[in-house]
Amino acid sequence: MLEHRGHQLWTYEEPLRFLGFEIGRIMTVIRLSSGGLFVQSPAELTPALRSALDDLGEVRFVAPASKLHGHLYMEQYREAYPRAELLAAPGLEVRRSDLTFDQLLGDTPDPRWAPDIDQVAILGNRWLTEIAFFHRPSGTVILGDVGYPIGADSPLKTRLMARIAGVYQRVRPTLDYRLTVKNEATLRRSIRDLLAWDFDRVIPGHGEIVETGGKQAVIDGFDWILDPSVSGWR
C-alpha cells in the first residue's frame, strides 16, 4: 500500500488515465519530526489507505502541487481528519471554492514543517504556479507536473505520447507547459533555487520515481531553460 523509502518518507502509487493515456499518479507521505504526517498530492482515501496512514501517525497537513495537481480528494481528508490543515497552491482557492483552506503556499515553509521540508514556488508559466518540496532527511525533491518522467515500463501508447511531449525518461514538464512560459528569467531562477537543494531522489506527480541521480536529471530535463554559461550547473 505505502512504500517506505527511508528517512520517514513513503509513497503511494496508483493508476491514472489522462486523455486516454495511462500516466500513473504518486502521493508522498512524510512523517514530520513532530510526529504528524504531511501528505502531498493526496490520493483517494480508501479504507485501506486510511488504515495505512493511521498506522504511521496523524495526518496534519494536506498539500497539492498546484491548482491542477493533487487536490481532487482533499475534502475526504478534511472529513476524516478534522485537525488536518488543507494547504492551497496559488489559484487553488479559486478553483476549489467549495473548500476552506488554512494556508496559501509560497516560497517559505511553515515553521511547523520547516525543520523537515523546504519549498519553492516554480514561477514563470502563464497559467500555472507549482510548489516543489524538498525533504531534507531523505534528500528528496517532490514535484507535481513540472517533472513528468514517463519510463520504459509504461504502455506503448503512453511512451509514444511522452516522446512527442519531450518527457520520455526526462524530468521535465510537457510541451504545453514549455510553450506557455511567459517569463523565462523567472522560471530559470525558480529552477536554480530548486537545484540549490542537496537532493538525489526525485518523486514526480506522474511517471517513474528517480531514485538516484535526480539532480542531474533535473538539470538535463530543464536544459531548455538553464543557460549553462550562467547557471553553473554544467
Rank of each mutant, 00 (worst) to 15 (best):
I191V: 00
T140R: 08
R31A: 06
G35K: 13
I30P: 06
K182P: 14
A88S: 08
Q103I: 14
V146R: 01
R17C: 11
D55N: 11
G221I: 11
E75A: 15
F21I: 03
D220T: 15
K67T: 08
D198P: 10
Y81D: 13
L9M: 13
T11I: 12
L195W: 01
A63L: 09
I122A: 00
L194M: 14
P137F: 04
T28C: 10
D55V: 06
K67S: 12
S34I: 12
D54R: 08
P47H: 05
R95Q: 13
Y81C: 05
R126K: 12
P64T: 04
I23W: 13
A217K: 14
I150P: 12
G144A: 01
I164S: 07
M161N: 12
W197A: 02
G214F: 05
E22R: 13
R178E: 02
D145R: 11
G166C: 11
V141L: 05
L92I: 06
L104Y: 02
V167M: 03
M27Q: 08
W127V: 09
K215H: 14
L45Q: 00
I209A: 01
G70A: 04
S190Y: 00
L19Y: 06
F222I: 11
D98K: 07
L16G: 03
D220P: 11
G124F: 02
P228C: 02
L86M: 13
Q40S: 08
S190N: 00
L128E: 13
R83Q: 11
T140V: 11
L86V: 04
L49Q: 10
A88D: 11
L143K: 07
Y148F: 08
L45C: 01
M74S: 12
T212Y: 06
E93F: 15
P228R: 01
P111I: 05
T186E: 15
G106P: 07
L2Y: 02
L72I: 15
I122S: 00
I219H: 07
G57Q: 10
P42K: 08
I203G: 14
L16T: 15
R112G: 08
L179R: 15
F199G: 04
F133S: 09
H135K: 07
Q119T: 03
R201S: 11
G20S: 06
Y81F: 12
L87S: 07
L2Q: 08
R178Y: 14
I219G: 05
S33C: 07
V62L: 05
V120Y: 00
V29H: 02
Q76W: 03
